[in-house]
Design a protein around this nucleic acid. Structure first.
Lengths: 186, 186
DNA sequence: TAAGTTGATGACAGTGACTGACATCGACTC
DNA sequence: GAGTCGATGTCAGTCACTGTCATCAACTTA
């Protein structure tokens, strides 16, 4: 056995989610999280840039999945449909950890600072999707708009999924159809 | 003359924007802002909830303008078009203080924390617009989607406006047309 | 196998954002 | 003239976050 218990990072993530759920984000100190994980406050900040980031560690891999799915979508698909397909794939991945996602979302919904962090992660996803579209030859502002609209669709569908029990990829497709109906103008 | 110089809040806003522009947001302490305004740190926090909020004091009145404009739009207009009209009105107001808006946006663009705050303000705008649509009888998720899509249109148009010299309400209308083209599916 | 290196962690002091409690004092009221 | 009020100042305290140096098991290399 090593000098330390393994997976310090994972223990910190678990301890943080548990404590944020029990007492709330603001009422939890980083020192308490670290203590529950058997570590010190200083070590927490070596693994996570700040107190919020511990809830968003998985965002990077989700973004990778989104981009690679979008990249492997045939160019024949319209940009907004290609994005929706990528979002549906990401949605399927999220759905595998429904209980975790729900618990995490409850914590985020209870705190404005965490919502801010979530919004900037979604904006980062949007930027990555727009970049990928541009590499496929989609010009701006169409690329940015398709990405932003896709993220909007995802947000709406995700919110429905948290409350209902329905299939997230399906909700994403339905939300996209709603958006198409809403924007079908003049 | 009163006991204190007038408009302490306004002086704090000016001092903060100037200092954030000169040295950057992180390199500026609240004590420095207060000193430049002839006040103390404690007084800063009586006027603004935190160090970021001093840049977002005008968000409330912009939201009021948006909502009242949307409220006075005839029900015959499609939801997305009513929202675009409200956004164009808000755009016209922003355009009256172009240089201020540009300076402020430069500061925000240079700092992730400020971008987070801006995103949650936009999300709040979106929620207010969706609420207003619901009061007009638009059902969800169409109301939320129209509001989110509208905010996406606004973001894209605003970014173009900062860089170009073109008319912001016009850019908003053009971005909406782009969105309609992008989402015109199958 | 002894010596050196590495990488994750601990210990500790320091800065700055933010808060609560209390004091101050000109303006305004009666 | 006494009392109240509202904006500000003062001060002590908590906690997020950072820089620096020490520790020590595992790994490397001669």
């Amino acid at each position: 056995m090593g000098r330390w218990e393994p997976d310090a990072r994972g223990r910190l993530e678990q301890a943080a989610l548990a404590l944020y759920g029990e007492r709330g984000f603001e009422q939890t100190t980083v020192a308490e999280i670290a203590a529950r994980a058997g570590l010190t406050e200083r070590t927490f900040f070596r693994h996570f840039a700040d107190k919020r980031e511990v809830l968003f560690a998985g965002a990077g891999s989700l973004q990778d999945l989104l981009v690679s799915t979008l990249d492997s979508t045939p160019d024949s698909a319209a940009p907004i449909d290609a994005i929706a397909a990528a979002l549906a794939a990401a949605g399927a991945r999220l759905q595998e950890r429904r209980e975790y996602a729900r618990q995490r979302q409850t914590v985020i919904a209870a705190n404005a600072e965490l919502q801010e962090r979530e919004l900037i992660k979604l904006a980062s996803l949007s930027a990555a999707l727009a970049d990928t579209l541009r590499r496929r030859g989609v010009t701006d502002p169409a690329a940015s708009l398709a990405a932003e609209a896709g993220i909007a669709v995802f947000r709406i569908a995700f919110e429905l999924w948290i409350n209902d029990q329905r299939d997230l990829p399906q909700l994403i497709r339905e939300s996209l159809d709603e958006l198409k109906a809403v924007t079908a103008g003049e």
